[in-house]
Design a protein around this nucleic acid. Structure first.
Length: 365
DNA sequence: AATATTTTCAACCGCAAGCTT
DNA sequence: GAAGCTTGCGGTTGAAAATAT
């Protein structure tokens, strides 16, 4: 038995809202509220031939008071970026940290601008090879129809890459020499990366793990599982969609293992609305947990201030062919980041070095 | 100036979970 | 406990606008 439609689709209008429709909806909600039932709202308003879901979306994303559109600040960029790396595409959680922003707006902004700025354009061939590295299923996993290859979502890859870029910035070369900094990977992803390593004879990717294993942990595929248990948000707050991807992402812990007990600087989070999922999980806490982890990283980095790391101009890879496109990352670094401990990763993640293409076979051409 | 291509973003869709009956 | 309904979410689409050729 199919699901009953939420509205009579033959009698509802679709597409962009007219000013008249906006006025009807806004006036009614401001006067009477939603009545706790969006589906019934269009009938209550009368002569508004819109689906209840459409009304809800229109109100939440556009008509509701105090909505901001466009003009994202660098601070907001930083928050979005760090939260995305930490928790993935939980846009509602991210939006909860940005008063006046809607999840839809943030999602669009990320997909159309932020992601491009941060990741640049992937070298498609490498990306494809990575994504399908187990194309011969038995070669990669020994199992027919490797489900993990299929489930290796772009989101997980992006987050992994972003995390590695952040780590490579903080510890430009130590990242590759210190397995404790490596994100915990699923065994199948280790295999994928191992395959990539074989294809890319980069010295940086050909790291040989130390022969001694002080923590008594087995080295597999050159990757080391740090003993420190770091937070895996996906396990605490499983995504509802994409169950296959969830299963994989649960095992793909891209969070750093740095000390997350460092105090959370809530200075810039004042006024952030508290959103809770119906299941009672406090999304704000989740976001704050993730933010505090990155706060610890960033504070640590600020304390060290990239001592001994001189960005090499000639190695800088430009995004979109223009150094100007890096301006949002590099603004005011010298004056701000070196003296500030505020929650502003923009001033931290602004080294040209982070765009260098030695991570996972991407380049920024 | 005309056309093609790319980018942006509002809106739609389907799914999952919670709630109500 | 089952079935139906509502809400919230994230992915995707497609028209409009912007930019390139």
């Amino acid at each position: 038995m199919g699901r009953a439609p939420c509205c009579d689709k033959a009698n509802v209008k679709k597409g962009p809202w007219s000013p008249e429709e906006d006025a009807k909806l806004k006036t009614y909600i401001e006067q009477y509220g939603t009545g706790g039932n969006w589906i019934a709202l269009p009938q209550k308003i009368g002569r508004l031939k819109r689906c209840g879901k459409s009304c809800r979306l229109r109100w939440l994303n556009y008509l509701r008071p105090n909505i901001k559109h466009g003009g994202f600040s660098e601070e907001e960029d930083s928050i979005i970026c760090n939260l995305y790396i930490s928790i993935g595409s939980r846009w509602s959680v991210i939006a909860a940290q940005l008063p006046g922003r809607t999840d839809n707006d943030i999602k669009n902004y990320w997909n159309t601008r932020l992601k491009k700025k941060l990741l640049g354009k992937r070298k498609q061939s490498h990306f494809n090879r990575l994504s399908v590295a187990g194309q011969d299923p038995k070669d990669a996993t020994g199992v027919e129809d490797n489900p993990y290859s299929q489930a290796l979502s772009n989101s997980a890859l992006e987050r992994l890459q972003l995390h590695m870029q952040l780590q490579s910035l903080q510890h430009p070369f130590a990242f590759y020499n210190n397995p404790a900094l490596w994100p915990k990977l699923h065994p199948l992803q280790e295999k994928l990366i191992q395959n990539l390593q074989n294809e890319l004879p980069s010295p940086l990717m050909q790291h040989t793990p130390p022969s001694s294993d002080p923590m008594g942990q087995e080295q597999k595929s050159g990757f080391y599982e740090p003993p420190t248990a770091s937070i895996t948000l996906q396990q605490e707050y499983p995504k509802t969609n994409n169950p296959k991807g969830d299963e994989f992402e649960k095992s793909l812990n891209v969070l750093p293992s740095s000390d997350s007990s460092m105090a959370y600087n809530s200075e810039n989070m004042v006024g952030a609305p508290i959103m809770s999922k119906p299941d009672g999980v406090d999304q704000s806490n989740i976001a704050q947990q993730a933010v505090s982890t990155f706060q610890a990283e960033l504070d640590d980095f600020l304390n060290n201030k990239m001592v001994g790391f001189l960005p090499q101009e000639e190695q800088m890879t430009e995004i979109d062919g223009s150094k100007d496109s890096l301006a949002w990352w590099s603004n005011d670094f010298d004056t701000k980041s070196a003296s500030s401990h505020s929650w502003d990763s923009t001033s931290v993640i602004q080294s040209e070095g982070m765009f260098q293409d030695y991570v996972l076979g991407y380049n920024l051409q």
